[in-house]
């Protein structure tokens, strides 16, 4: 089968396996070892790990640099790219560079507003939005053109060498207006999203209702939907997620369950395992995006408990060319 990017994630999904992605937040420093340490927890047990792009608008090691470090340590990266910090020139140039360095998955995001981060007086960019970014990455890959319409070649005689990304996008079934959430997903699919990672799910009823709409529109057949889950470490974290994180829905029953348990962290993991078990059976779900925030060491335990280990093997590809 012809691959769009040839990434491990793409191959696993194409082979029909239930895919697993994780999240790897780069350090708030130039410490490459911090990336290596997280890679040790994730290597061989997930198809790919998302390398976040200045998440919550806090400056961190760049997602492309973090992604290349991860790649060298045996973890395939999904490089996240937000519209907050770059205009269309910077984005395209970074996408060329990311491909040249071996990156094959790119997640296109709007980005958290700078107000939430550690440089609230910064000027945001938002030259294009996440849907337009998806379109741009797809046109670069499939039409081999820059956004301006020029061919992706160094000189008129040089070969066209286009960046080939497996294109991801986010979907948040818990934001409003609820009736429009599936429409926005449809727009992302139309724009060219090959896979979707959802906001983390705590409100399974609402998620189930959203997935019903997704399946009704047949969107699950045009894109691979990876359901987002984040294990809760404590009742305090559950309350924080409920009260302080925009665009998230945490039912009181979930908070009470964690709060009432003998050990909140064990209960958080048990709840996460139950969620994954349910998602594995849900129509239209192609995999799970397990975001163990600063808790990467628990990923293996959770996947083990859900019977998702060992990961199936797909045909190995030669390592992407560098330089």
């Amino acid at each position: 089968m012809d691959m769009k990017s040839g990434s491990n994630l793409e191959k696993m999904l194409a082979a029909g396996h239930f895919a697993v992605t994780a999240e790897l937040g780069p350090p708030k420093s130039a410490d490459a070892k911090a990336v290596s340490k997280k890679c040790r927890y994730l290597k061989g047990i997930v198809e790919a790990a998302n390398i976040t792009d200045n998440q919550t608008a806090i400056v961190r090691m760049s997602s492309i640099a973090g992604g290349v470090l991860a790649l060298k340590r045996g973890v395939e990266p999904v490089v996240q790219m937000t519209c907050r910090d770059r205009n269309r020139l910077a984005m395209q140039s970074d996408i060329l560079g990311a491909h040249a360095l071996g990156v094959r998955n790119l997640l296109c995001l709007s980005g958290d507003h700078q107000k939430f981060g550690n440089h609230p007086t910064a000027k945001n960019v938002f030259d294009i939005d996440s849907i337009q970014l998806i379109q741009m990455v797809k046109e670069m890959r499939d039409d081999r053109l820059f956004m301006c319409g020029e061919e992706i070649r160094n000189t008129p005689k040089a070969p066209i060498v286009e960046p080939r990304m497996f294109i991801g996008a986010a979907a948040n079934p818990f934001a409003d207006p609820f009736a429009f959430r599936v429409v926005r997903l449809a727009k992302k699919v139309e724009a060219g999203a090959d896979f979707i990672q959802t906001q983390c799910i705590y409100d399974m009823d609402r998620f189930r209702e959203w997935m019903r709409q997704v399946v009704d529109r047949g969107l699950h057949e045009r894109t691979a939907i990876l359901a987002g889950v984040t294990p809760l470490k404590s009742a305090g974290m559950a309350r924080y997620m409920r009260d302080n994180v925009p665009g998230l829905s945490v039912p009181d029953s979930v908070v009470e369950r964690i709060a009432g348990a003998k050990k909140g962290s064990d209960e958080g993991i048990a709840f996460c395992v139950e969620q994954i078990e349910e998602l594995k059976e849900m129509e239209g779900i192609a995999g799970v995006h397990l975001m163990a925030i600063e808790w990467e060491q628990k990923v293996e335990q959770i996947l083990e408990a859900t019977g998702l280990l060992p990961r199936p093997k797909v045909e190995a590809d030669e390592a992407p060319e560098e330089g």
């Binding site: 907050r84 709007s110 938002f126 337009q132 979907a171 727009k187 665009g247």
Partner: peptide, 15 residues
């Protein structure tokens, strides 16, 4: 807040 042309983003809640 993000001048998005294809909104709303995932941060829209209760209007």
């Amino acid at each position: 807040s993000k001048s998005i042309l294809n909104g709303p983003c995932g941060g829209s809640q209760d209007g």
